[in-house]
Amino acid sequence: MFLEVRVKNFFVFKNQIVFTLDPLNKTTAIYGPNNAGKSCLIKGIQAMKDILLNQKVELKSN
């Protein structure tokens, strides 16, 4: 289980961002204005999952 995700130099994230998950909550929501990086954060989490499972990582630019 991911407890914290750090992303830097990935799509729209030039500076490092930290996304922290609460292990006691079963639901997490990602919200914000358009073009804030919500989809890019999900792509980063999917890429990390693929790397950990030794699967092919496919990243396509927006």
Rank of each mutant, 00 (worst) to 15 (best):
K43Y: 05
Y31I: 08
A36S: 08
F10W: 09
K26M: 10
K43F: 03
F10A: 05
T20K: 15
I42N: 07
T27H: 11
T20D: 12
K14M: 08
I17C: 06
K49P: 03
F2Y: 12
L3V: 10
F13Q: 00
I51T: 12
N9G: 13
V18K: 13
I45K: 00
K43V: 03
G44I: 03
K43H: 08
Q16W: 13
L59F: 14
R6A: 09
I42R: 02
T27V: 07
T28N: 02
D22Q: 03
G44N: 08
I45M: 08
T27S: 01
I42D: 07
I45V: 05
E4W: 11
K8L: 02
N15V: 13
D22S: 02
R6T: 13
M48R: 03
K60N: 12
K56S: 14
F13G: 00
N25A: 00
S39L: 11
G37P: 01
K49N: 11
I30Y: 12
T27D: 04
I51S: 13
L59K: 01
K56W: 13
L24F: 11
I45A: 01
L59M: 14
K26F: 13
Q16L: 13
F19M: 07
T27Q: 06
E4Q: 09
P23F: 02
I17Q: 04
G44A: 15
K60P: 02
F2V: 06
K49E: 15
G32W: 03
F10V: 07
I51Q: 11
A36N: 01
L24T: 14
K43C: 07
A47Y: 04
F11D: 07
N34K: 00
P33N: 14
Q55W: 01
V7C: 04
N34R: 00
S39G: 07
N25Y: 00
K26R: 03
M1P: 06
F2A: 03
Q16T: 15
V57Y: 08
N25P: 00
K8R: 10
L24M: 12
E4A: 11
L21S: 08
K38H: 06
I30A: 07
K49Q: 14
M48N: 11
F13R: 00
E58I: 15
